[in-house]
Design a protein around this nucleic acid. Sequence first.
DNA 1: CAAATGCGGAACGCTTTCGTATCGAAACCA
DNA 2: TGGTTTCGATACGAAAGCGTTCCGCATTTG
Lengths: 204, 204
Amino acid sequence: MTETESLSRRPGRPRSEEAHDAILTAAIALIRELGYDAVTMEAIAARAGVGKATVYRRWKEKETLVIEALGRILRAIPVPDTGGARGDLLGLMRVALGMYGDPASHVLLSGLVAAMARSPAIAHAMRSGFDAEWRAALRQVLERGVARGELRPGLDLELATDVVSGPFFYRYLMSGGPVDEPSANALVEVVIRAFGATAETSDR
Amino acid sequence: MTETESLSRRPGRPRSEEAHDAILTAAIALIRELGYDAVTMEAIAARAGVGKATVYRRWKEKETLVIEALGRILRAIPVPDTGGARGDLLGLMRVALGMYGDPASHVLLSGLVAAMARSPAIAHAMRSGFDAEWRAALRQVLERGVARGELRPGLDLELATDVVSGPFFYRYLMSGGPVDEPSANALVEVVIRAFGATAETSDR
DNA sequence: CAAATGCGGAACGCTTTCGTATCGAAACCA
DNA sequence: TGGTTTCGATACGAAAGCGTTCCGCATTTG
């Protein structure tokens, strides 16, 4: 904002975009492999093929580096539109399955959850990024379901959101239970039964 | 088993039970404060008022120490019996609220979740302790509900368990949403609506 | 051109943790 | 009593990470 206003104003050699990218990419890769806590600035620089000074010139702490890196793995979640709440919810569940399916995500996610507990900045980044994105997509699907008359008008959106998100999250991080297509189907049926318009209770 | 068969067989000074207890207690306290990863053997010994050698004489690795210490905070979960599924589930939810209510539990739980992702031994200890205990209590309540005719006979026990456990777990570790009595009430209603016998869908 | 800044790389001093060793005192057994 | 083991405490060397500084070269502005 202040630096790059009129097309690179400063005298010397400009900072390398390649280095910037390589550092962020290396950071994500290492957090996937080792978890947030175990990753060091030294290792990030080494993996990126970059001097430590190049890293410290941009970020003073691992925390801020990681927060910027998190933006890289955050992709917009496509909101499915199959014409019905059941199909839309299933579509979102498949997005979740895709994320949970990668075994490396386990170390990544659990490491970040632990980091959230001790770093408000990381917690904010995760909630306003990962979680908010997912939540918004889910809310949209649920509201469309209400508008169509498939879901109950007065339904608690927050609660419905977490009934969809929570069970897989719990299985993935704690119980080790199945996180797969059949479970996704069953969970969607539960949500529709719980939040569906009072008419349709046991169809399918 | 082998050592203490005939009332302290070995010649020298016996190991201090006080030291043993103090070490385990110190370990738990520190994990609550700092998280699993950040706790060191040095800090545990210091907090316990014990020499490092005394710690290493008993446990070679932090991992095994922590696994034994986890047994300390695992209390048997009382299975409520209010005469109805709704009341029983609410009783269990209050147990969960009691655990989540302690702010120190946040660092404890999230640190252990991260440790589970990298240590199969910790994962096993958590699943066969904390999770299994909770799951068994929940299963009992659900099965009683089925026997009473309040819940649907063919219900998926695993899924129902995780629909109860997951949402608060997700709020606690990820979204930061409310984990309180009103939410517990609402969640119980969701479970009863989703898994209830087809007759009672919208009473209360 | 000179001045300024960034580059990858290496080395620096500092701190923390690791796991082991050693100490004199204390607690147990034969 | 003498032998053995643990006690709390402290010191130790090795290893790792920190954040900084310097090097020689590259890339930009003026």
